[in-house]
Design a protein around this nucleic acid. Sequence first.
DNA 1: ATACTGATGGCCT
DNA 2: GGCCATCAGTATA
Length: 183
Amino acid sequence: MPRLSRHFFVRPTLTVTRELLGKYLVHQTRQGLFVGEINEVEAYANVDDPASHAFRGRTLRNTPMFLEGGHAYIYFTYGMHYCLNIVTEQADTAGAVLIRSVIPIEGIKMMQKNRGGKPLKILTNGPGKVCQAFGLTKQQNGLDLVTSTELWLEDRGKKISRFQKTPRIGIRNGTNKLWRFVS
DNA sequence: ATACTGATGGCCT
DNA sequence: GGCCATCAGTATA
């Protein structure tokens, strides 16, 4: 499979964000293989972005955001949900793309099991839902998606011609930027 | 259809 | 102590 390599991720965050639409998220687990087509993303930048976890500099939690592009940043929020981000930019420059939604492609039966039997329409249409369906937790935080045998991204030749730009969801600051892309 | 709210815990000031 | 890059359920129309 044509796996995304380092140079794809080590670019400006907004470029990577746009190009992640239509790419495939793959999680290989003992339970089986999970695959989804990314169809909703959000860009989170560095110190100039008040919505970004990196806004106030490096902390214990946001450390993966400062790694070289291509790593995973998975954080725990609201006491019960995990959210998956794809780290962008070169090392020491924070930047990440939040995976807000995917279209289930493979491992749908297991995704439904992980999600308590929810129907296809609402199986993976939210950042917390994607992690729950794919079995992603703190365990995968910091993984290098370029070299990992467990978690990576693929280009399967899908072309995205049209997509919407909107403000990001669930934030208080930085709502002026249209950094949420939906295909 | 939209609007509101409780659940629940780690992180940061 | 306050604040969440959320979700599912309930209420209201």
